[in-house]
């Protein structure tokens, strides 16, 4: 018969080491798949698609420096589903006739911007961020100008990608 821990101190040490090792082994074995499951989104490539916004000829006819909100619909895979993401594109034409395609999310924390014509500014209803019509910050806490959508012009149509230009921290659209 093996000795009990009370009879032999070395036996006691041995048993405690075995208990510790088994606990750690089980813990690690469980933690690996759990961490994998939780961290999984970091290893997923995001689904990038093009979606048509409208005809260039129509967009070029808007008034200069008056933003036009145009919805765009991205059909993307999200997890196990395929969903439509409706998003606003702010189309602005400057004096020279150049078109800009901004996102309507505030660059501070992502609230939906309101265009206030009397002030000629975009205002964030959450924390008071303000942008001028060309997307530059003119007040409040936002750290950077408005995000611009990745876009291209093909066969007279403007196509928008569900992705922002100059977006190092991968802020979602």
């Amino acid at each position: 018969m093996t000795k009990s821990s009370e009879e032999s101190p070395s036996r006691r040490t041995f048993m405690m080491v075995v208990i510790g090792l088994i606990s750690v082994a089980i813990g690690v074995a469980l933690a690996i798949p759990i961490m994998g499951e939780v961290l999984n989104p970091l290893f997923k490539r995001r689904d990038i698609v093009w979606s048509e916004l409208g005809k260039v000829s129509d967009l070029e006819n808007i008034e200069p420096l008056v933003p036009k909100f145009v919805p765009v619909y991205f059909r993307v895979k999200e997890g196990w589903t395929v969903n439509t993401l409706p998003r606003q594109v702010i189309v602005v034409k400057d004096i020279a006739g150049k078109l800009y395609f901004f996102s309507n999310q505030c660059t501070h924390l992502g609230c939906p911007l309101h265009w206030i014509p009397e002030r000629q500014k975009f205002m964030c209803p959450c924390h008071g961020g303000m942008f001028n019509v060309l997307g530059e910050v003119v007040g409040g806490p936002p750290p950077r100008p408005l995000f611009a959508w990745v876009y291209k012009i093909e066969n007279g149509a403007v196509l928008i990608q569900n992705k922002f230009l100059d977006n190092p921290k991968e802020r979602g659209v």
Binding site: P41, R46, E78, G79, W80, T81, G172
Partner: peptide, 8 residues
């Protein structure tokens, strides 16, 4: 669960 606010 991804870059967008989604079902996940």
């Amino acid at each position: 669960g991804g870059t967008e606010t989604s079902v996940l």
